[in-house]
Design a protein around this nucleic acid. Structure first.
Lengths: 131, 131
DNA sequence: GTAGAATCTAGAGCCGACTCTAGGTCAAAC
DNA sequence: GTTTGACCTAGAGTCGGCTCTAGATTCTAC
């Protein structure tokens, strides 16, 4: 199984080494990272995969505390699938809501862009700061 | 023209009075809020509309500094449509990127939800009514 | 006219999520 | 054999975006 240094993982994930250590302290890793000589972290491919999941969850707005909770459930092993499902479903709801919100915003922006393009392309008509 | 107190605007927009004052300090309002006797703020319907735009922009992840920049352009009046367009188009790009990211996350979650649902559906044991 | 609610300003405090610093260990390259 | 660079820990600092406090004033209802 591959063994990666924190620097290599940083490069692969796009997270800084600082952030990787920070995430570990925060309990976001499914299992404690292996250590080599002098206590250097040794990441497995599985660790990197898990980090990938965390990154996705973060990018979609899940707070660290929720990611930690989910991680803890996974770490605890089988028997808590119902709770994991709950966490995931809750987050899915929030993601969907967020997508809806983004869509509304997109409509607004697209409208405004059209207004300004029209104004520039054709002639001045004064529909100023209307929403 | 309607005249609203800060409390009424708070109720309408869902922002707190604190946040309304904060936004004003931060220069997010298209024009300075009118003041009544004793310096109490008097918001117009237009102010509320503009706040609605700000709220949308915030909800879609635009930082306050960018909203302020856009506000300043609007406040400066006609002649800077090109710059306004640039701000809007840039943000649209970011919104689209964010939607893409959310979509990826949604796929991941949906997949995981399916996995857990499958696992629960197949093996029905004491994981059923877990607290 | 007085109690209680709403408003004002200036400024402090808080929270999440990093981000960086200081001071140290260690392996390998020159 | 020392210098370089990647790594370590503990803890401090930063930043964005609010959120709250203190102390004063003013509006509203009785």
């Amino acid at each position: 199984m591959s063994a990666l240094s924190i620097g290599q993982v940083a490069e692969r994930t796009g997270l800084s080494v600082h952030t990787l250590r920070f995430y570990e302290r925060e309990g976001l890793l499914a299992q404690p990272v292996r250590r080599g000589t002098a206590g250097h972290r040794i990441y497995s491919e599985g660790d990197v995969d898990w980090l990938g999941v965390c990154i996705r969850l973060r990018a979609s707005g899940m707070p660290l505390t929720d990611i930690r909770r989910y991680t803890e459930l996974v770490r605890a092993g089988q028997g808590n699938e119902v709770e994991r499902l709950e966490v995931l479903r809750d987050h899915r709801e929030r993601v969907l809501a967020q997508m809806h919100e983004l869509n509304e915003c997109l409509k607004l922006i697209t409208h405004k862009v059209a207004v300004y393009e029209g104004r520039l392309g054709l002639r001045d008509d004064f529909t100023d700061c209307a929403p």
